[in-house]
Amino acid sequence: MNININNYEEWMVDYIEGNLSKVQEEKLMHFLEVHPELKSELEIFQQTKLQPDMHMVFENKEMLKKEEAGRVIGMPVWRKYAIGIAAAMLLFAGVKFLSVNNADVSGIKYTAKEISKPVFAFKQKETTDSGAIQSEKNIKQQPEIYFAEEKEIKKEKFADDKKELKEENKMEQIQRDANFVTEDMEFASIDEIDVIKHRGRIERDVNENYLQYTYANYVQPEMKTKNNNTIIDKYNNTVAFTESIGSLLGFGKDDKEKNDTDDLKETHIKIFDIEYYNRKKTDK
């Protein structure tokens, strides 16, 4: 069909819709040459091409979206963070554990050095009991001798009993724990810590909640840190913190009441040198 005065609108619309072939386009242009008064109509037709209002958008598209599988989903946000923190702490603990092991030699040295002080006190008490009161000056002249005696006793115990050896290992661990805290918890300085160690008491406490008790025996309770916490608060906080990490990962502190008749699946984890256990009953 050819273009004429009755159907030119259809041709124009087809033109702006892009439906015309090259030949048809030429026919339309030729028609407009003949009817120039209709040219403006084609221009107006071109204005009927709608432009979307790009400012009109669906606000907050996120609400339409769904969580992708493979991501960690269905877990409350706090747990994501908690696991992140726990992972970071484990890494930190791992590094710390290595450094604690490396520091073992110096740690023992430190303990040995500090032992001299409580030993004085002990000896002073002893001498008080026997009635012969020594002056502080006199005590200070003998510390190394006394320390040597103490060491000998330890050696004897090692030889005597394997159980005692185990206890001794535990005590070493306690010392490491103590060192860890003193070295890393922003205390004023190690020198300022007055050790009032009492060896007999420590041994008794080993089988109880030894970490907290023993620590109290190692240092003066009123010793304050920069944050105005006592040194024991600091240590307890550390223990509580590691415990919370342990429990977050499903581990608990070692409970001695293990029923031997049960088949148990046991997993160990060590955080800041403190062991946690996860025991699950298994069906036979």
């Binding site: 609108e9 619309v13 702006i16 107006i44 037709f45 204005q47 009927t48």
Partner: peptide, 11 residues
Amino acid sequence: FRARQTLKNYL
């Protein structure tokens, strides 16, 4: 076509 025709006439 009708839509464009109406729009054009309106303009």
